[in-house]
Design a protein around this nucleic acid. Structure first.
Length: 406
DNA sequence: TCTGGGGTCCTAGGACCC
DNA sequence: TCTGGGGTCCTAGGACCC
């Protein structure tokens, strides 16, 4: 049976949210960045900025060059999370089959609902109206309608902003002729190059290519690639809530020039560890595995992970483990980026208190610190311990588990 | 020329257990 | 004593997405 799938994509997401929140930014070219410095990169550009050729992932200095009037706005993750959750709630009220795809997109399977409406388009209009009423007219979305996720995603991109695009079954072949390989979600530049080497340079060519040869080159992905080339995608819309999705929590930072030595990178690492710990506590999660990542001057990223045999959410402890990993990983002479990622997450069991009094005290301390920092602003209270004062940190003890012996 | 920061999923090999 | 094979966990690295 044929399905009806929507792909709903917020337009210029972070930038629109900021324009909605602050009337002074409306109608002006703005970009949202991590930090409002010229060294950072564009996370989202308003439609006014896009007209000058500015777009996400562009270096901020480059964006400035293209658009001298550009306004840099620092991002506000809490605000976006609130909107994201409410956005998904609106979609979920039309169908429980909602699959979030990042913070500003989602797939919605409305097959069972569509009979109640005159057409898929009229249902989309209802959704758009809800979004506008909830958030304001500066926050809009574009929607793609098709028989599967792959085509719906292509469609939502064809008319932006505030568009509705439907790809009917008899239009699929025509659409596939007009796009390039990397327009398909799942085919990036690496895969495109490998396909080119096989003599495949367009989507229809991919659809006609012998599956056997694709499997030789790409293994199990070969069959999926062939289907992509034909515009087929049997994958279901998998319902999930935004929170359930989280599998890992990590933070990383590109080092400014003057901190690109192993020694000077340590305080940065310490702060990242605190941040990861705070985010874990806020989500009520503990991490069983920690990974340290470093990028060298040639842009090569190396990482090493550790599963210490206990679960952690304390920034100081995370830092201690990071130092332990660093000993084994080694550091390049010129580190350009450092990062910590926590995975193997599990919910913190609030019923079982730690047995050791020291740990109980420690938990209480962190809880109070978090509360104060939330009340009076981040960084109100912080630890004095940092690089050079490792002896103040909790000991990580011995490792005797498999995989820790290298 | 210059490339941020948040993630997910997959593979492949080794260790270990039964 | 020597043997096989399946399942699971761990780690490193690659590709991709927004």
């Amino acid at each position: 049976m044929s399905r009806t799938i929507f792909h709903v994509d917020m337009d210029s997401y972070f930038a629109s949210v900021e324009q909605q929140a602050n009337p002074n930014l409306r109608g002006k070219p703005i970009v949202v960045t991590g930090k409002p410095t010229i060294k950072s990169v564009v996370a989202a550009a308003s439609k006014e900025a896009k007209k000058c050729g500015v777009d996400s992932a562009m270096a901020t200095w480059k964006a400035r060059k293209k658009c001298p009037d550009l306004i840099l706005v620092p991002g506000d993750p809490d605000k976006y999370e609130w909107i994201t959750n409410n956005f998904f709630d609106i979609l979920r009220s039309y169908s429980p089959k909602l699959e979030p795809f990042g913070v500003d997109e989602a797939f919605l399977d409305v097959t069972a609902k569509i009979k109640e409406y005159r057409s898929p388009e009229s249902l989309v209009k209802r959704i758009k109206k809800d979004v506008e009423e909830k958030f304001g007219c500066w926050i809009t979305c574009s929607v793609g309608i098709a028989r599967n996720k792959l085509l719906a995603k292509l469609a939502s991109d064809m008319d932006k902003p505030d568009g509705i695009t439907r790809i009917r079954d008899n239009e699929v072949i025509e659409v596939l002729e007009d796009i390039s390989l990397t327009d398909i979600c799942g085919i990036g530049s690496r895969t495109e190059k490998r396909l080119n080497r096989l003599g495949v340079s367009s989507v229809p060519e991919l659809g006609d290519f012998p599956e056997k040869k694709l499997k030789e080159e790409f293994g199990v992905d070969g069959a999926r690639l062939k289907m992509m080339g034909q515009g087929k995608d049997p994958s279901p819309v998998l319902p999930a809530t935004y929170e359930e999705e989280v599998k890992s929590v990590g933070n990383s930072l590109t080092l400014p020039d003057y901190k690109r030595t192993p020694r000077k990178a340590l305080p940065v690492l310490f702060k990242l560890a605190q941040k990861v710990g705070y985010r874990l506590r806020k989500k009520g999660l503990m991490a069983g595995t920690l990974k340290l990542m470093v990028r060298d001057g040639e842009f090569n990223v190396k990482g090493k992970q550790l599963t210490p045999g206990r679960y952690v959410d304390d920034g100081n402890l995370i830092y201690s483990f990071a130092l332990e990993i660093k000993k084994r990983l080694g550091f390049p002479a010129t580190p350009t980026m450092v990062g910590i990622r926590a995975s193997k997450l599990r919910a913190k069991d609030s019923f079982s208190q730690p047995l050791l009094p020291d740990r109980r005290k420690r938990e209480e301390l962190l809880r109070v610190m978090d509360e104060i920092n939330e009340e009076y602003g981040k960084g109100t209270l912080y630890f004095a311990a940092q690089a050079g004062a490792e002896d103040l940190l909790p000991s990580v003890g011995e490792f005797k588990r498999p995989g820790d012996l290298n």
